[in-house]
Write a protein that binds this DNA or RNA. Sequence first.
DNA 1: AGAGGTACCTGGCAGC
DNA 2: TGCTGCCAGGTACCTC
Length: 271
Amino acid sequence: MPELPEVETTLRGIEPYLINQRIAGLTVRNRHLRWPVDAQLERKVQGQIVTALRRRGKYILISLEQGHLIVHLGMSGSIRVLTPDIAPQKHDHVDLLTAAGRVIRYRDPRRFGAWLWTQQNPEQHVRITNLGVEPLQSEFNSEYLYQQSRKRRVKIKTLIMDGSIVTGVGNIYASEALFRAGVRPGRGCYRVNFAACQRLVDSIKLVLDDAIAKGGTTLQDFTAIDGKPGYFRQMLLVYGREKQTCYECGARIRKVVIGQRASFYCPDCQQ
DNA sequence: AGAGGTACCTGGCAGC
DNA sequence: TGCTGCCAGGTACCTC
């Protein structure tokens, strides 16, 4: 479900309910997420004030007076803001209760997500240190992508989805950005020239910005913190459109598998 | 060191 | 209707 725009949408949604708020309590109903949830987490966050929230890649960093929560939504995670009278459902694994009487409720059916805890600077945490550059920052630019692409022998779609190169470009937006840049996903990254790297960088930023502005993409079960879906889905030009006609040229959209992930492209618009 | 495959887990859907 | 198999937005970790 969540790629960078969905994570950003979630972060912006929960921030007003958490920033400068005191944590009245934490409830963990299922500790078996991607990594076991710290057995002492409830005690560690209890009574603390949230001092900052930010995003790094697809991780949400929630800073408290002492220590930091590192939250990841995995493939199927979502967070909503509710009131305590609403009963948790089957896959609602974690609740953060604020002193103001809000429940920040984490749902994750597949449990690929994470709730990690660190006392150190979260930027130094092993899950964060190895992340590549932020795609929406100026450090991600055509020179950077071009240089990285010269060092590797993978397909270009695999390169832009490699979180140690650039973090946050997931499967949907990778296909979408490659279409807008006119680059085939299966092209060897070392064969993508500088001009195409430039277009690709621009397309990635454009697509992510646009998706954030529309509240993310909802395919099956992504909801914003109010439970409403995102509206980027109608903006998808190739993802999930196998055998349908290209909006640009009318050719049939093709599906190929790259790195075990479905990839969509227009054989005429993309070389 | 880099590339590619596997694993984690549940639910939805197509096909029979 | 019910079963089976496949697929899904991510990414860490294994082997070669």
